[in-house]
Nucleic acid binder design. Structure first.
Lengths: 122, 122
DNA sequence: GCTTGACCTGGAGTAAACTCCAGGTGGTAT
DNA sequence: ATACCACCTGGAGTTTACTCCAGGTCAAGC
């Protein structure tokens, strides 16, 4: 299946302007039809979903572009892409740790508040 | 103890410009000495540390300002501040969950890569 | 008494990642 | 054949959170 930008925007949950921006930034490489319109495929949908995840995990566009470039080179870059993901994994793991820490600090702070409120109540 | 902005910047790890920006945005209320210079205290250091944590947990300045405002109103706002923190806790918990999910997805992706590399090797 | 360094202000500039706009084209429904 | 709508482009504007700058003040050391 293939889609024009409007439908693809709906399917992917990414705005038309952002899709065009991603193409400009070389995160995606999009084919055109005879009248110059962008044609997106299901494969693009997979790829865009992964981009979304990379973005959600805080990867800057510059780095995603690097990954996209490697991907465009084919299977010879599998190792390098895996290395990139490994580094990113370390980052994601650290983020998870940090949020756990934030949570426990926040819980302490809230406990402190609860005590203070209880004290001011009697 | 009290500090001028330069020393306080070093102690808090927040740049001089950012401290002035935080004052402008009403995240902090700073006293001045007779010649108009900002005087920071240890209490300010505590507060700034908490602001740092709120920022690290993705709380936008607008919302921190609201918290700062309530804090400035004294103990009568303890409950409201606790409510604010409770809501924020839910957010932080969700973030933790999301990062866990990201981690497991990434691990799946990497496994996929490893298999593909192994296959292309023989 | 003059220089120096840390401080002051208002306002402009920056970076990242979009988001919007004006002006134009192509295919289709009436 | 004309209206309409989705699409196109280049480029300007937006948002958030700073960061930098020019021009000025003040207290201390020489």
């Amino acid at each position: 299946m293939s889609y024009l930008i409007g439908e693809f925007s709906r399917l992917s949950g990414i705005s038309i302007d952002t899709l065009r921006y991603y193409e400009k930034e070389k995160l995606i490489a999009v084919n055109r039809n005879s009248s110059g319109r962008r044609i997106f495929t299901d494969a693009d949908l997979q790829w865009i979903s992964f981009i979304k995840r990379l973005k959600e995990t805080g990867m800057p566009i510059q780095q995603i572009r690097r990954y996209a470039f490697l991907r465009g080179q084919g299977d010879s870059t599998l190792r390098e892409r895996l290395t990139l993901l490994k580094n990113h994994r370390a980052f994601v793991l650290e983020q998870k740790r940090i949020w756990e820490e934030h949570l426990s600090h926040l819980d302490q702070k809230m406990e402190f508040y609860e005590k203070k409120i209880a004290a001011s109540e009697k």
